[in-house]
Amino acid sequence: MNAPGRPRRWTPTPLIGGAAAVHAGALASWLAAPATWPWAAGGVIASHLALTAAGLWPRSALLGHNWTRLPESANASIAITIDDGPDPDVTPRVLDLLDTHRARATFFCIGERARAHPEVVEAIVARGHAVENHSERHRHYFSLMGPRALRSEINAAQTTLGEIAGAKPLFFRAPAGLRNPFLEPVLCGLGLHLASWTRRGFDTRTGDASLVARRLLDGLASRDILLVHDGHAATDAHGAPVILAALDTVLRAASDRGLATVTLREAIVG
């Protein structure tokens, strides 16, 4: 395995290799017997549908390696991952909560938000947490981008976050977890690893912190990767971000079950 952060060789997955073979076969079939074009076109369309479905499944490894759980070496640990920040109001309160529980977390930050609030990113690092790449602008059409646009978007965040945090990210999480077959070659070239999650709280949509916590704790086990949000955070009836009460409950339960918290960076570096 390459050293973390170093570019690595991209190897197509069986699905991507199969789709390429279907395209080549369809072209050869059409050239040899033009009347077979409906069958050739049908095969190409089916392969595109399969690739699209794989990209719409955030936890899929069909388009490339995807961290959905920590490696076995993590033992009795879980990872708390926090997306869409930094937020100048919510993130400092999340940091205080993590300090209270002596927990470490991984913050997937948006580049343009980090540029707007560099002091918050600096506080994340100073308090022992990791900063990783969640794209430069968190575009809703991220999964529709081509390879050049993907590289520009991700590399811009690498530069921004690396300068502010003092170390370039080792992990990338796609906006909403959605992606396409062009993403993995870009990540390999930039030395990044794709990370999704084991379970999520849907805390950008749900204003009930207890429900968010139940979703995260249902079946919680060692090596799980949990997803919550400090950016775009839903609020409860009193206007408090639900991440605060939900994460407090989760961290208490994890401690009771003997589960420690680690950052993804710690898990890959060892």
Rank of each mutant, 00 (worst) to 15 (best):
M1I: 11
M1T: 13
A3F: 10
G5F: 01
R6C: 12
R9A: 14
T11M: 11
T11Q: 14
T13W: 10
P14D: 09
A21G: 15
A21H: 14
H23F: 13
A24T: 11
A24N: 10
P38M: 13
W39R: 15
G42K: 07
G43C: 05
L49M: 14
T52D: 12
T52L: 15
A53C: 13
A53M: 08
G55Q: 03
L56F: 08
W57K: 11
W57H: 13
P58K: 09
R59G: 10
S60W: 05
L63T: 00
N66T: 07
R69F: 00
R69N: 03
E72M: 12
I80P: 00
D84T: 06
D84A: 08
G85E: 02
P86L: 06
D87K: 02
D87M: 08
D96F: 14
L98R: 04
T100Q: 13
R102E: 13
A103F: 01
F107T: 05
C109Y: 02
G111E: 00
E112G: 10
R113W: 03
V120Q: 02
V121K: 01
E122L: 10
I124N: 00
I124V: 12
R127S: 09
V131M: 04
E132T: 02
E132H: 04
R137H: 14
R139Y: 10
R139V: 09
H140I: 12
Y141V: 14
P147G: 04
S152C: 12
I154V: 12
I154P: 00
A156M: 06
T159V: 14
I164N: 00
P169I: 06
P169M: 09
P169F: 01
A174H: 02
P175D: 08
G177M: 02
R179Q: 12
N180P: 06
P181I: 00
F182K: 09
F182L: 10
E184P: 04
V186S: 04
L190K: 06
L192Q: 07
H193W: 08
W197Y: 09
W197L: 00
R199M: 09
T204D: 06
A209H: 07
A209I: 05
V212F: 07
A213F: 07
R214C: 09
L216K: 02
L216A: 04
D224T: 07
I225E: 03
L226K: 01
V228K: 04
H229E: 01
H229Q: 08
H232C: 10
T235G: 05
D236P: 07
A237H: 14
A237M: 12
H238T: 11
H238I: 11
A245W: 03
L247A: 03
T249M: 09
V250E: 05
L251K: 03
R257Y: 15
L259H: 07
A260R: 15
E266L: 08
E266V: 05
I268E: 08
G270E: 12
